[in-house]
Simulated scan of single mutants.
Amino acid sequence: MRVDLFDFDLPPERIALRPAEPRDAARLLLLEGDQIEDARVRDLPDLLRAGDILVFNDTRVIPAQLEGRRGEARIGATLHKREGPRRWIAFVRNAKRVRDGDRIEFGAGVSAIASARLADGSIILDFEGEEPVELLLERAGRMPLPPYIAGKRAADARDAEDYQTMFAREEGAVAAPTAALHFTPGLMAALEARGIGHATLTLHVGAGTFLPVKAEDTEDHRMHAEWGRIDPATANRLNAARAAGGRLIAVGTTSLRLLESATGEDGIIRPFEGDTAIFITPGYRFRAIDGLMTNFHLPRSTLFMLVSALMGRERMQAAYAHAIQAGYRFYSYGDASLLLP
Rank of each mutant, 00 (worst) to 15 (best):
L5F: 14
L10F: 00
L17R: 08
R23L: 04
D24F: 03
A25T: 01
A26S: 12
L28C: 08
E32I: 02
Q35V: 14
R40W: 13
V41M: 15
R42W: 09
D46C: 02
T59G: 05
Q65L: 14
R70W: 03
T78I: 15
R82Q: 15
G84Y: 09
W88F: 09
K96R: 15
D102T: 08
D102F: 11
D102Y: 11
I104N: 04
A108T: 00
A108R: 14
I113T: 15
S115G: 15
S115W: 04
S115I: 10
R139K: 14
M143G: 00
A155T: 13
R158K: 07
D162I: 04
T165Q: 12
M166L: 15
E171W: 13
G172W: 03
A179L: 03
T184F: 14
G195R: 02
G195H: 06
H198M: 06
H198P: 00
H204F: 05
H204D: 08
V205Q: 13
V205I: 15
G208Q: 09
F210R: 02
P212Q: 10
A215E: 12
A215T: 11
T218G: 01
E219V: 08
D220H: 13
M223K: 02
A225Q: 13
I230W: 09
I230V: 09
A240G: 13
G245A: 03
G252Y: 06
T253M: 05
L258W: 02
E260Q: 07
T263W: 08
G264Q: 01
E265M: 05
D266N: 12
G267I: 11
E273Y: 00
I278K: 03
I280D: 01
Y284I: 10
F286C: 03
A288R: 11
T294I: 04
V307A: 11
V307E: 08
R315C: 10
M316L: 07
A318E: 14
A318I: 09
H322R: 15
A326P: 04
G327W: 04
Y328Q: 11
Y328D: 08
R329F: 02
Y333F: 15
A336Y: 09
S337R: 07
L338T: 01
